[in-house]
Design a binder for these strands. Structure first.
Lengths: 189, 189, 189, 189
DNA sequence: GCTTAAGCGAGACGGTACGTCTGGTCTTACT
DNA sequence: AGTAAGACCAGACGTACCGTCTCGCTTAAGC
């Protein structure tokens, strides 16, 4: 059965892409707080109504713009050694949060989520950190019988680093991260 | 040496208190995003200039309004048993973040800090979670030789719970927190 | 000789009628200022492009919609007595301007003409008041040798009443109109 | 008894004057339809809120801007000869309506009044044409016993010329106006 | 007791983003 | 080709809040 086309002019894919690009650019150039729907529309060369037609807030645009990037940057290769695997993940996570544009977007969204519950819901659904973390944990599960319930394991894995970064602390060194990975393996053994 | 009084009318303590109360009230009533400097001034029955004279942004007011409350709510009694002590702290922390007005303020400020670096600096200086956490850790230090560097220990202690709460997850149960405390003690032994 | 058909789908008479009706209805329901091209199209159940294809502005539609009605309402029976004839015309004119939908449209168009020269030109061409007035004057011409130049006579005949109505004054009574007719006849004798 | 000053910063007279000047200028430069509240604010170098704070629509500004000018331009010297006096008034009126900026404003407002009843009320209250007309009529009253009721006399005096001008006709010549003045005197004698 | 200086409330100021609306244009599929 | 639908860019709408500024008035310290 073929899908019947909707009447009227179809959505402009170029306008959609222009908005998503504009949001990416503006985030790094001016920061989240200085981003405005008006500015996004102008930067994208798009009518404001077109922006409002498809996204209710700048946070929604940002989620759509950055979710894929984010996930791509957080996939890591498999390693036989649990400590090494966890270390790799922690290093990648720290790198993502502190140096990647997508990570900056994630931090901004995490911040916005504290002010706007709907953004929180959307961000939770995107599961940007949880999904990659679970990939790692699932690989380790056979060798680590002491792993706690899923969401708690994710929190113990990601929480400390996220906490350091969002509280403005300098991110931990690779040596520190290796030590923490070692502790996690010991703990979960 | 006595401090020489400044000339002119002294600062009105009642105006200061009215603003701080207004901020507390508005945060729970309307949320951080809907709070405005104008609304705060009106709610406090105070001129807008008076607010701007003493605080540059609503975040600054909120920090002043809630820091003391926050710290008061996070002090816990000493226990000989490390596991019990850590459990108590984790339970208190979870309670603070999810149920206390001061905790709501802290989350809002943590969110704002992701958008505004100055708020981040101020919040880091207030050290709202770090100070109480360090009190606990200092008490435990003699019996836990494996404790990592201060800030990392704080991150491992607080990070997982903070992560759960700010990502919108339901906070862990007391049983879960006890298990996590147990793991931390094992890890740091 | 038969008229050669234009290529393509012929203009939809039903769409045209629907638009003209919609304009009539909207004028009395919401007033001229609240009428929009979009609203007209939606009320007529017609695409917006179809409206724009045939009329450039709502004023153009309104002229087309109301001109015929207007003229029909301003034709009066012949009378031998000049005073009676003029009185009848003045009463009919006052009635038209204050009570008829077509009169309301005329007033709205006269208003728009002050803002938009093109509407003024169109409205002048439609000659909505002038034509009926001239019918009356032409009938009276043989018995009133003092009649001034055509357009001035029309102005003296219609001007005072139009002035009263558009300045928001209450329209004159039949007695007043009869007296004015009497004065005009005296003047033009 | 001295008037107690209102609290707060007093209204800026310079802002008020700037807005009124901007409206005057924009009317002649771009016409009434193209005038916008935004454009007025920008032209006046004034915040938009300041405009909205004191005037609800551009029509209200225009009435305030032009009423005084208008009245000044419509006062005429006294003459013993009724025909000459009326002629002078008619010439002045025609000049005002066709050549004066204030007259252009009056025409625009008269147009707007057909779309917006509140403007009609305000314009009627300003009595821009009526007041000067009544000055003339009051002077003539002793010598013209046949003058009808005030508002009807004003309508017979001003109506024909206003009608000619707003219907887009060329204004009458001085000779025509003299003839019309003569007829009015005959009629009212 | 008078002067000086700063804080106080109120509220207008010039700006700017908000989210909505309409204007005209365009691009579809259908008739 | 004409039509209804509806997305497109553009820009004005009226509102809200921004942070600043002017008011008249307190309230103290210091002369």
């Amino acid at each position: 059965m073929s899908k019947s086309a909707a009447p009227g002019r179809p959505r402009s894919e170029s306008a959609r892409a222009a908005v998503l690009h504009a949001v990416d650019d503006l985030l790094v150039e001016t920061g989240y707080a200085a981003m405005t729907m008006k500015g996004i529309a102008e930067r994208a060369g798009v009518g404001r109504q077109t922006v409002y037609r498809w996204w209710p807030t700048k946070a929604h645009i940002l989620i759509e713009a950055c979710a894929d990037d984010a996930r791509g940057e957080l996939t890591i290769a498999a390693h036989a050694d649990p400590v090494r695997m966890i270390t790799e993940f922690l290093v990648t996570l720290a790198q993502f949060l502190t140096a990647s544009p997508a990570g900056a977007a994630y931090r901004a969204l995490l911040g916005e989520a504290q002010h706007d519950g709907e953004v929180g819901t959307l961000l939770a659904a995107a599961d940007i950190l949880g999904a990659p973390a679970r990939v790692v944990l699932d690989r380790l599960a056979p060798t680590l019988p002491g792993l706690p319930q899923d969401r708690l394991a994710v929190a113990e894995l990601c929480g400390p680093i996220v906490f350091l970064v969002i509280t403005g602390d300098t991110p931990p060194s690779r040596r520190d991260l290796r030590a923490q990975a070692q502790r996690l393996v010991t703990t979960w053994a």
